[in-house]
Design a protein around this nucleic acid. Structure first.
Lengths: 230, 230
DNA sequence: TCTTAGTAAAATACAGTGTATCGACATGAG
DNA sequence: CTCATGTCGATACACTGTATTTTACTAAGA
């Protein structure tokens, strides 16, 4: 269980603190993905023995939590002038952009409850934007539905992006080149609808399709908020 | 890159094959979570040296892919009589139930493109159910939006479930007991909307809220399918 | 039948991981 | 000056995924 309150730093010198540790970990993850983050490498980047970190962090999982919360600071919009719909849309897009900057975020998104101060601030801002528009249950459902959508969509987008990168091909070609396997599968005739989709599918812009799906979900939420409880 | 086609098994005896390996790995994961799955433990469970496994799988990631595809076999509905909406709803619920049986699935869901035979069969069935209801782009958007929703929702549900289990408390109490930290945060007055939500929030049934959000999304999809392209 | 070639399996090896523990050292109190 | 405290570094342990080497056995050729 992550303890979000920073313990007192060691009494005297120590040019080391949580923020520097987290920053180093994020840098490592940005460069080489989550699996490039090891306590030893983080410590090395700070010119410090690995065990020093345990004065500030009690487990690697906790470090991940802190990294995620740090990114939530980037996600939190500076001002939110618009209505609830604009607030949710912006939140979704900012989360997506953060995940594009820090792809490892996709691996962590939704993996555990987000209770860091920045994540709480994001939740607060979101709830505030919906406050009073419906009963609390409906508001919660709305927030959770929208965030379930963009969480899932972001994960899939990053997953596809990585797969494309691994083969070095555009999505259209990717399906054609994804080893002989997929083509053989399609050639069996057991997947006619899929085959048609692969064959006729146009190359879609990831951001556009994210935005479209988001709008659909927001439409649904709007309909439920209008007509409060069932 | 996972090779989905099984290589020829070793010529003679070998009571070992991919299926047994995957079954052992799934059993391990069901018992102790994904991090309890190590190639050494899988091999030990099959009374075999660790290196034997590399005759059937080429990397641990590949083993995970195979595990996921195996679960997709549970997810694929035996028959699908209903309309597209029923098909999507059933898919979502079956995926959720599979994740409740195999919690580790939540860690893998959406993490990488699913191209195993069973996953393809699921995709095929889904696309077939929507075939002809709108242009292909719209259909794809519909499928992806719905699956983004339930993927995200399932991940969050499992994450919360684990957090509750870790403290051994119901959700209501959980918020109250989640260390002094959260309460202190709320007591600061910086999160009034959140505080109200925590205070007034009723204990909601996870399945019900999953289903409700799903219905909202399906409503949105229905609206778009009715009025084909913009 | 004996030898040899080839292959499947096991054993060993390596470079790394998260984290516990212990020993030295420096700093403050008496 | 002595002693206690408590931080830091080094060392240690149990484990990981996987490469490489060694062994065992099986089948073919002479």
């Amino acid at each position: 269980m992550t303890v979000w309150d920073r313990p007192e730093p060691p009494t005297r010198p120590a040019p080391l603190d949580r923020e520097r540790i987290v920053a180093a970990a994020i840098a490592l993850a940005d460069e080489g993905g989550l699996e490039a983050v090891s306590l030893r490498k983080v410590a090395a980047r700070l010119d410090v023995g690995p065990m020093r970190l345990y004065g500030y962090i009690s487990t690697k999982e906790e470090l991940f939590d802190l990294m995620v919360d740090e990114v939530y600071a980037e996600i939190l919009p500076e001002e939110q002038p618009g209505d609830w719909r604009e607030t949710l849309r912006i939140l979704a897009h900012r989360t997506r952009q953060a995940a594009l900057r820090h792809e490892w975020l996709a691996d962590l998104l939704g993996g555990r409850p987000t209770l860091g101060p920045n994540a709480l601030a994001v939740t607060e801002a979101t709830l505030a934007a919906l406050d009073g528009l419906a009963d609390l249950d409906t508001v919660m459902r709305a927030v959770e539905t929208v965030s379930a959508y963009f969480t899932g969509a972001i994960r899939r987008e990053i997953a596809n992006l990585r797969a494309e990168r691994a083969t070095g091909l555009s999505k259209r070609d990717w399906q054609r080149a994804y080893g002989p396997h997929l083509m053989r599968m399609l050639a069996t005739g057991r997947f006619p609808a899929l085959a048609k989709a692969v064959h006729d599918g146009t190359e879609v812009d990831a951001e556009a399709s994210f935005a479209t799906g988001l709008d659909w979900v927001l439409d649904a939420v709007a309909a439920k908020l209008a007509r409060p409880p069932a």
